[in-house]
Write a protein that binds this DNA or RNA. Sequence first.
DNA 1: TTGTTATTGCAAGTTAATTGCATTAATGGG
DNA 2: CCCATTAATGCAATTAACTTGCAATAACAA
Lengths: 141, 141
Amino acid sequence: MKRLKLNTQRIRSCLKESHLRSTRKRECILEALLTFDRPVSAEELRDRADLPKSDLVTVYRTIEAFLGIGIVQGIPLEDGKTIYELTDPGDHHHHFVCRKCHKTERLDLCLAGELEKKARKLGFSDISHVMEVYGSCEDCN
Amino acid sequence: MKRLKLNTQRIRSCLKESHLRSTRKRECILEALLTFDRPVSAEELRDRADLPKSDLVTVYRTIEAFLGIGIVQGIPLEDGKTIYELTDPGDHHHHFVCRKCHKTERLDLCLAGELEKKARKLGFSDISHVMEVYGSCEDCN
DNA sequence: TTGTTATTGCAAGTTAATTGCATTAATGGG
DNA sequence: CCCATTAATGCAATTAACTTGCAATAACAA
């Protein structure tokens, strides 16, 4: 599959294709996302985007929109919280995540195919899955 | 590895080994756990154990204790909530979980070994992982 | 430019889960 | 069996990550 590197330009067209409006706040949040090399929480995102406290709700709604069109991926943490990262649409992968600093390493290892097959056999449909690996990274040790 | 089927007796000795006291409430919650054939939320557990509303906190603390000695396993849901099931200590496995009714099927497919190896290579230590598969079960379709 | 419709801002609500602290109960030693 | 120690419980309050409702605003297409 052809992977298109994400950038502001490309994301704008993603939004357009999905009939989502390209607004000032969204651009702002997007720019913030681009400055991170690791997944982040909604709050971190708001702060990096230099938005007022009350705009957390906009961040959540923006994330929701971005998740919807597949340019953002949510990563569930052990404690039930979620962090988010930009991702190329269709680029499915998992992560090693540091429990402490949330540094991540990409993990290109996935059982999707087998899961799908087994699920079908069991009568499950509309399958999705999570797989995340948590640990302490070198720096945090 | 030898697997000992869980029952009240065995769990009592697990508690003892771990210097946890065997109390009325814990027995009660344990009995409730034994009546389910699927993972359940803390609230369901409280209700099945016929405990008053306010005892939810005891349920959480009991679950915490049981998690600690490895006789209960938590299963993270897509929405950030967690459900719990009894499990034989050391019996590591994952699940297919129905999004709607929380029926689960055991999934004996795991990348633990490879994850461990890759993690070490990346400098991550103290590794744990989640892998859960969500879908709609036959009955809920 | 204008009308339509999505987005936002603000405030309030939801809810799973946690915490502090005083009271009670389980356990082990004598 | 009793008592001292220490863990567990009960209650009330709190946390924190989201979510929702609704009125005001801004984007977009015609």
